[in-house]
């Protein structure tokens, strides 16, 4: 095993490069001149030209384009994949996740963390599971690698909230147990291929 990583003790001494920003007025007089120049040249109305035109159309000619979000929402395409969903087994209602940690491993943004433990039923239990949506790049690797089709990307696209944690916990992503019947399977990406039966060697069974 290489010891290189232990030998760099100069933590924090990186080579920073400063951005070369254009000069800003340094003196009070210079700043005043800049304000006067910008105000009197009516640059503002050049920028607002299109806006004013569209406003006039909307107000007086009934040509409104705005969707009144969040009261109105545009429909998303059926193949749209965003916020993760955790699926349940249809028969038992138990969550599908077995805690294998492959999503944690494959995540290129290192956004997923999982905690597991030895449960009282002698099975591996998922104690805690989070996806950091500040880092998630929605690449879909987690859904692809999942051996149980437990994690998939759903149609929910709203990644804004007062706290990021409010939709990144396991229970928030899990299909609510009372809506198990509405749980949708996603064909295609990440799921069992249609010709799976042909490609799998059957294992002999002795009973």
């Amino acid at each position: 095993m290489s010891l290189e990583q232990f030998k760099n003790r100069n933590v924090g001494v990186q080579h920073y490069r400063m951005l070369d920003l254009s000069h800003t007025p340094q003196t009070g007089w210079g700043q005043f001149k800049q304000v006067v120049r910008r105000t009197l040249s009516l640059e503002l109305f050049v920028g607002l030209k299109v806006t004013l035109r569209e406003m006039t159309k909307a107000l007086f000619f009934g040509k409104m384009h705005t969707t009144k979000y969040p009261f109105e929402k545009l429909p998303v395409g059926p193949r749209y994949r965003a916020i993760h969903e955790m699926k349940r087994l249809l028969e038992s209602g138990h969550y599908r996740c077995i805690g294998c940690g492959l999503c944690e491993k494959i995540c290129p943004a290192d956004a997923i963390r999982i905690e597991t433990a030895y449960g009282e039923d002698q099975r591996k239990q998922v104690q805690e599971y989070t996806i950091n949506f500040g880092r998630c790049i929605f690449c879909g690797y987690c859904a692809e690698v999942c051996p149980e089709l437990a994690i998939v990307h759903g149609g929910r696209y709203e990644t804004a909230s007062e706290q990021r944690a409010s939709f990144s916990l396991f229970d928030d992503m899990l299909t609510p147990i009372d809506r198990l019947k509405e749980q949708k399977e996603f064909p295609g990406y990440g799921s069992v291929s249609p010709d799976a039966d042909k490609r799998i060697h059957k294992t002999p069974l002795a009973y």
Binding site: E148, T203, P204, A206
Partner: peptide, 28 residues
């Protein structure tokens, strides 16, 4: 998927290395 040895398991390693992709033997 749940085994602690997964990833450093010699049974996994040798099964993959010898290319075992089918099973011919069975017993209850």
């Amino acid at each position: 998927g749940v085994c602690d040895q997964s990833g450093e398991c010699e049974l996994q390693n040798y099964t993959l290395e010898l290319g075992i992709d089918s099973q011919h033997y069975a017993i209850p």
